[in-house]
Design a protein around this nucleic acid. Structure first.
Lengths: 390, 390
DNA sequence: AGGATTAAGTCAAACCAATTGAGTTATCAA
DNA sequence: TTGATAACTCAATTGGTTTGACTTAATCCT
């Protein structure tokens, strides 16, 4: 009898873990805070908050950040997160390379690396990753605080999904328990996620989504993916493949075509190649965009309605605080796309009382997904969760 | 300083409430269960489960359901939910009528009622609803167990959404706190939800979604809406309007049109009217469908690609266990639509290892949304939640 | 038939963490 | 200087889970 597993039962220890996350989460969002303030916001008693803060300070997560002046009574002693108190290791597996990054609680990269591989053979990769971790730990310039865990990014979709044979997959990994393999090799907690979700999380830990808890991230990888964060955690759907927007039909030249054949880096590269331009790297793309290369501008023109359509769907189906575009495109191009993509007027997101843009550019860079892999782990320790069933 | 509220802190009492929900949730899904079995599934100790079961039996929620035979050691004493142990009151507000229902934990209707109103004036409606509750309580044939709360269904979208002026809204309620007004008038906990979400929940409490915890529900009301259940609870998005699929463009006669102008009851009625058929009620529609009326069949033909498109989007964006169609259409027509809507092959839901249909017809009926309103409350008491931040 | 094994369940003590209420300290305001 | 206000601490209490020893009842094996 394999019933879906219930969420884990709660006891005193799990309560404490949850409440610790609550305290950390508040300090992360609100900045340096006093005990009483956190108690009010969380519904906990001052005493409980006090005990937890004592523990967090003793363990190095929080440090005393001065007294709050100006008020009426006793000035509050405030505490802030020590960004250097912990780190997370991020790994991104691509068909031809393995990337990794070590980031701290503030999302700052302490170390990054990249190794080209001829084939993404599982056994080989796992061993390589283990070496990369050792290198990262010994070669970081600053002293590395405790490593909270590792995140691994692989191109989705996962499992048996009916999308087999599509270009977004990594050959040789079908049916393997990547999570267990990496956990074993690295000897730490490991989270496996697809690139779009990881990239989305990177923006939350340190990026344009810093203050957001529910948003969608349109990720330009090879194809196009959608990362979803709801209530501060990733929305995965029943089988872990929510956000597979690449195959959704979008308008193109009077007809409908899968979004990833229109608005993806692959589509862009193809269009440029047809025009006689081999653009292999982001730098190439950046140059062509700066030159306002006709083929580039034509691609943008063609992709615009499709992106608008995608934004429309995402807004009305998820009702997010914002939609973010990011990934493996030049920053200026992303910025341009967010500024010129028409925002559908018939959308639940077109609110009268908005005070935030509907469409944002990710702070990205080529390594968003790699950073995101690590960010997954950071976010877990800074966001309370008792684990709901899926 | 209005920071987004943190989820409530956890303490012993909240833990108990959560664990009670866990136990009830297990018994709901798995049927009569013994202490040890629940303990294994929930991660709680047998003793904890034992204490909780003792409490639940004392309060009437569970009853002893015999011993489990056949096993090795001491046969387990099993417990099952007493469906009559609690009830919930559901209210549906329509522009021209107020519907209500009293249902028990198993989703059985103990009482239903319908009152035509000339205008949905808030003050008047609130008073009326209060009277309807009194009537329901005194007129039900069976004795009515404790009322756990009330659910109210109003056509969404809520708040200031940029969709003002659209037909899905209820005039006169803008800017009012319906939740507080009904809670005050009925003197009980009140949940307000849109029709699609409520209908979705009706299918989970007693319907085709009984065993599911993540699914999407395409709801045919006047327009068309999408109700979303994820992990056993409703997915609302950042502002409560997730699932507004009616305005999403869908293919129609070679072009793109908003889905609700193609595949909605309103669209169907309009098409029939053009063909000289005034179909006001579900019975009318049922008759025309049975006759295979040409206008009806033509509408179905036209709606099919749009519905397929909608299913495609929903599957790939939410990756649900199933998509359900239901609402204010004749059961036979719904059944026909689910059987003949082409299922997109390029979808994460087209899994090789599926053992459940991708598309299902709701067990529906005209009063799905009303029942759903009450089902919201039932589901809350039977599904554990510590309240995640939004 | 009878002992060994297995599993469900109870009881009482220990334990963990949050709450409660009384008291302390530091700032502002009159 | 004094009173009001607010943050915080201390110690006792409370609520709920876990732990470990024990009991009970079924099947399995000889």
């Amino acid at each position: 009898m394999s019933l879906p597993l219930l969420p884990p039962g709660s006891n005193a220890e799990r309560s404490r873990a949850y409440n610790r996350g609550l305290v950390l989460g508040h300090v992360r969002r609100a900045g340096a805070s006093g005990r009483a303030e956190i108690a009010r916001a969380s519904g906990l008693s001052t005493q409980a908050v006090s005990n937890i803060i004592g523990e967090l300070v003793a363990e190095g997560w929080l440090y005393e950040a001065g007294r709050r002046t100006g008020g009426r009574g006793l000035p509050a002693v405030t505490y802030a997160i020590d960004g250097a108190a912990g780190t997370a290791f991020g790994i991104e597996l691509r068909p031809n390379a393995v990337l990794c990054a070590l980031i701290d609680l503030d999302g700052r990269a302490l170390y990054t690396d990249r190794v080209a591989v001829s084939r993404a053979d599982p056994g080989h990769v796992v061993q390589l990753v283990s070496q990369l971790l050792d290198r990262a730990l010994s070669n970081s310039r600053t002293k590395v605080a405790r490593v909270l865990g590792a995140g691994v990014v692989m191109p989705g979709p996962f499992g048996k999904t009916g999308l087999s044979g599509f270009l977004t997959e990594l050959p040789g990994w079908e049916g393997l328990d990547a999570q267990a393999m990496f956990a074993e090799a690295l000897d730490m907690a490991v989270t496996v996620e697809n690139d779009a979700n990881a990239a989305a999380m990177a923006e939350r830990v340190s990026g344009v989504a810093a203050g957001l808890s529910s948003y969608a991230f349109l990720y330009f990888g090879t194809g196009i993916g959608l990362g979803l964060v709801s209530g501060g955690t990733i929305f995965r759907g029943a089988f872990g493949n929510a956000g597979e927007i690449g195959h959704v039909p979008a308008p193109f030249e009077g007809g409908l075509r899968p979004l990833e054949e229109i608005a993806s880096r692959m589509a862009l590269t193809t269009a440029l190649r047809r025009a006689g331009e081999a653009a292999e790297t982001v730098t190439d793309l950046d140059r062509l965009f700066e030159q306002r290369h006709p083929a580039m501008m034509a691609w943008i023109e063609g992709a615009r309605p499709a992106l608008s359509h995608a934004v429309h769907i995402v807004e009305n189906l998820y009702d997010p605080e914002a939609v973010i575009m990011g990934g493996a495109l030049p920053a200026r191009l992303l910025q341009h796309l967010t500024e010129t993509t028409p925002l559908p007027s018939v959308s639940v997101s077109n609110r009268a009382d908005r005070n935030r843009p509907r469409l944002l550019a990710g702070t990205a860079g080529r390594m968003t997904a790699t950073h995101g892999a690590a960010a997954l782990v950071i976010n877990q320790t800074l966001t309370p969760s008792l684990g709901l069933a899926t």
